[in-house]
């Protein structure tokens, strides 16, 4: 609770090693291992995709970094600290289906939620926060819909709202769970531009992604995950047919050409 009480905004010490450092991480879901002995490092300033088949533990990996899931073994350091302490520098975009879109809130209401962390307890969002939220909405091309009820948005627009909320958080690390799921091509292009902008500003972005074809186009780093971490590194080095086969089994042969 303490870090929320004193909403500090100082950036994490720059250049002090990797953004995320995971060693020997094992996470269980019930009695089933979801992540088995994962060693993983994410350097600062990369735009990284996490790919792997269904049930590979991609969402669990993000939730573990956020400290929402307790590992049974291993350690995680985010900006050199335990996850719970590092949350103030992390923005999270959950899967779009995780919330009730009939909730009585406007687009602006939802984006303003990204400012709550900076406000701390009791204080209400002020003009400055409103400005920052509108700015974030502008970045995803949604300002004109700021006062629309969220239930009236299309899937792509809902996803843009979620990304705008993350932008409004002014974070150093962005964790996004399938932000391109079900969105139209225009939105996908718009969002990838936003992500590139974040990378250019020195932020680290990790995206759970399901479309293997676009990995080399959109991302510079990639992690191949299937319960174990099969490989990670620059796309050019590890996004190979061999590693993909190890991740997906033989089904990944479409890419070997």
């Amino acid at each position: 609770m303490a870090p929320f009480l004193f909403a500090r905004r100082e950036p994490p010490a720059p250049g002090a090693g990797p953004v995320i450092e995971v060693t020997d991480l094992t996470v269980m879901y019930g009695d089933r291992p979801v992540l088995w002995d994962v060693d993983w490092e994410v350097p600062a300033g990369v735009l990284m995709a996490v790919v792997g088949p269904n049930g590979a533990g991609k969402t669990t990996l993000l939730r573990t970094i956020l400290g929402l899931v307790r590992p049974v073994a291993g350690s995680i350091a985010v900006f050199g600290r335990p996850p719970a302490e590092a949350r103030r520098w992390i923005a999270y975009v959950p899967q779009r289906t995780a919330v009730d879109w009939d909730f009585p809130a406007t687009v602006l209401d939802v984006v303003l939620m990204g400012r709550y962390r900076h406000l701390g307890w009791v204080r209400r969002p002020g003009a400055q926060d409103r400005e920052r939220a509108l700015e974030a909405l502008a970045q995803v091309g949604m300002v004109h819909l700021a006062h629309r009820q969220i239930g009236q948005l299309s899937v792509g627009q809902q996803q843009r709202v979620f990304v705008a909320r993350a932008l409004a958080q002014d974070a150093w690390l962005y964790l996004m769970d399938e932000p391109f799921a079900g969105v139209d091509a225009t939105t996908e292009q718009a969002l990838i531009e936003v992500l590139r902008g974040l990378k250019a500003a020195g932020r680290t972005v990790i995206v759970v992604h399901h479309d293997l074809q676009t990995v080399p186009l959109y991302f510079d780093w990639v992690t191949l995950l299937n319960v174990r971490c099969v490989a990670w590194g620059p796309v050019t080095a590890v996004f190979t047919a061999d590693y993909l086969r190890q991740t997906y089994g033989e089904r990944a042969s479409i890419l070997s050409g």
Binding site: W36, V38, D39, E41, R228, W232, G233, T247, G249
Partner: peptide, 12 residues
């Protein structure tokens, strides 16, 4: 580990 994911981790 089953058929998949059996390979050891590879650092970058």
């Amino acid at each position: 580990l089953g058929a998949n994911g059996g390979a050891p981790s590879h650092p970058p």
